[in-house]
């Protein structure tokens, strides 16, 4: 059982790591890079929006902070080997944590819809700053990062591998949280925060921890994105659509699950690109995209993984009842530990 559980992630990351060696078309790698970015960010968002139950709409602000930090640093420092911008990632993650802690401490005094509004306000404040602090951000003219001196044929690969690494990090953090009492504390506060306080759960501490780690990961993706794009503009670096994408992907795959956000990112990002390709440059693809989303929400309202887990659980219980076996309640436990329950 334990061996089987480890096999899934290993196979997944082995496939991811080997993909570039198949000489995929440039657009495929490009699509994979964006899919990975969103997989990391959705996984990061899931720590706050899924496990802690705080629907942040401000994560794109930290994506932007990461992007600008990267661009600012390398508009003053040279890029020689091309790998320096990646070495800066831990520092950028830390910067976002330092900014995120006080922000989270204030914002997380509110909950649910109010929290969503407070955080989306944060997003627009950061976007406003990016537009207006001309001296630092270049305003609407944006900032440029010198292009990496990677060979053209394999130009995308370093970005790709760094993002695979970040996804592994995000998923490892998620897994560690789920397995430890931090995950249990987060699940408890998601279920009933006031009650959780009364049973000695370090409510403020664990939710701030989740928020800090989450925005740190998000900022690192922002930094990779800035380097990959080479140019950043305020409206794309601090973009509400990025926030929305993280939320949608996590909801689609399943909140508070390990694989949900990753699954959601792979489905939605590729669906969006595929539909854009098939339906051309007109905005028709957005309608088709919305349709896909609506259908899934209609059929699997709690997200794919929780719905599937629930059905498996129900079937097992029925079987257990039929056979009169005493392991009647086993699946409940499996579902609860795998998914951390569903809100």
């Amino acid at each position: 059982m334990t061996r089987l559980r480890g096999a899934g992630p290993i196979a997944f990351f082995a496939v991811l790591a080997s993909l570039p060696s198949f000489n995929l078309a440039h657009w495929t790698i490009n699509l994979l890079i964006f899919t990975l970015m969103f997989a990391v960010m959705s996984s990061a968002w899931n720590l706050v929006g899924g496990f802690a139950g705080y629907p942040s709409l401000g994560h794109a602000a930290f994506f932007g902070i990461g992007a600008y930090a990267e661009a600012l640093w390398f508009s003053h420092h040279p890029v020689s080997s091309g790998y320096e911008p990646f070495l800066l990632l831990p520092a950028i993650g830390l910067l976002a944590v330092v900014i995120g802690l006080p922000v989270g401490a204030v914002a997380m005094r509110t909950r649910t819809d109010v929290f969503a509004i407070v955080t989306i306000t944060l997003l627009f404040v950061v976007q406003g700053l990016a537009f207006n602090l001309h001296g630092i951000t270049g305003g609407s003219q944006g900032l440029a990062i010198p292009p990496a001196p990677f060979p053209a044929a394999t130009y995308d690969r370093p970005f790709y591998y760094v993002l695979v690494g970040l996804l592994a990090l995000a998923m490892a953090v998620t897994f560690a949280a789920m397995r430890s009492k931090v995950g249990l504390s987060l699940a408890a506060l998601r279920g009933d925060e006031d009650k959780a306080r009364g049973i000695g759960i370090r409510v403020t501490g664990v939710k701030l921890l989740a928020f800090a780690v989450s925005v740190g990961l998000t900022a690192m993706v922002g930094a990779v994105w800035a380097y990959y794009e080479g140019f950043i503009y305020p409206q794309f670096a601090v973009d509400p659509l990025i926030t929305i994408a993280m939320v949608l992907m996590t909801f689609l795959g399943g909140r508070a699950t390990l694989w949900g956000p990753v699954l959601g990112a792979f489905i939605l990002e590729s669906a969006q690109q595929y539909l854009a390709y098939q339906l051309g440059g007109s905005q028709v693809y957005l309608i088709a995209y919305a349709l896909v989303f609506l259908l899934i929400m209609l059929l699997l309202p709690r997200g794919i993984l929780p719905t599937v887990q629930d059905q498996i659980r129900r079937r097992r219980r029925r079987q257990a009842l039929d056979s009169g076996s005493p392991t009647l309640t086993q699946p409940a436990n499996a579902a609860a530990t795998a998914g951390g329950g569903q809100a």
């Binding site: 009492k181 249990l184 504390s185 279920g191 959780a196 049973i199 569903q342």
Partner: peptide, 16 residues
């Protein structure tokens, strides 16, 4: 805590 199991409800209250 509604979405936790009975056992987890107890364990969560350990005051860690």
């Amino acid at each position: 805590i509604p979405q936790l199991s009975v056992l987890e409800n107890l364990v969560a209250a350990g005051g860690y």
